[in-house]
């Protein structure tokens, strides 16, 4: 039995403190997934909080044949996507952060690659952004991404390809430099 499962068992038996190591282990991961999706620290913190609350509420239905981290990733992705949708985040991002007078070239003139990438991500569609996040920032395999997004591996690969091509165009100046 994995350490995660032991903690889950303890939590489900009434030991509230058993949840703390799970938060320790996964809060940074969840937070970063959310942050890349919404590009706002406060929103990402809210999403992370919601993810763990939902996880604590739904742990009873967790199927131990799956890995806990995959399961919580799935919650994190869904929460992030729901947040983006509910708050019309795409519109805000595209209007306020990306199309705020800067051309993609201008964006890429920024000294910080991280900032360029983060802004580039906001220009991708939600479905393309999430596969880039899971593959490149969370280092998940095709199978794991497929599980989390409930997609066949074939679709994961084609979506990754499409997402990379889009991002490559956005960051083309930097890549060819």
């Amino acid at each position: 039995m994995t350490e995660d499962l032991k903690l889950i068992q303890r939590f489900l038996s009434g030991d509230r403190r058993a949840f703390e190591p799970l938060v320790d282990r996964y809060q940074k991961t969840v937070f970063n997934v959310a942050l890349r999706m919404v590009n706002n620290t406060d929103d990402a913190a809210d999403i992370t909080q919601n993810v763990f609350i939902k996880a604590s509420e739904k742990l009873g239905s967790f199927n131990p044949k799956y890995k806990f981290f995959s399961w919580i990733y799935r919650i994190a992705v869904n929460e992030s996507l729901n947040f983006v949708e509910a708050s019309k985040k795409n519109e805000r991002l595209s209007h306020e952060l990306v199309a705020d007078g800067k051309s993609p070239e201008d964006v890429l003139q920024d000294d910080h690659i991280a900032q360029s990438v983060e802004e580039g991500l906001t220009k991708l569609t939600d479905e393309n952004r999430i596969v880039i996040i899971l593959r490149h920032f969370q280092d998940l395999s095709y199978d794991e991404i497929g599980f989390i997004l409930d997609l066949p591996v074939r679709t994961v690969k084609s979506r990754l390809f499409s997402a990379r091509q889009s991002l490559k165009k956005i960051l083309s100046n930097r890549i060819e430099r």
């Binding site: 489900l12 030991d15 949840f19 703390e20 938060v23 909080q49 604590s56 742990l59 009873g60």
Partner: peptide, 10 residues
Amino acid sequence: ILNIISTPAL
């Protein structure tokens, strides 16, 4: 997070 979560206490 830890302050908010509740335990499904058995």
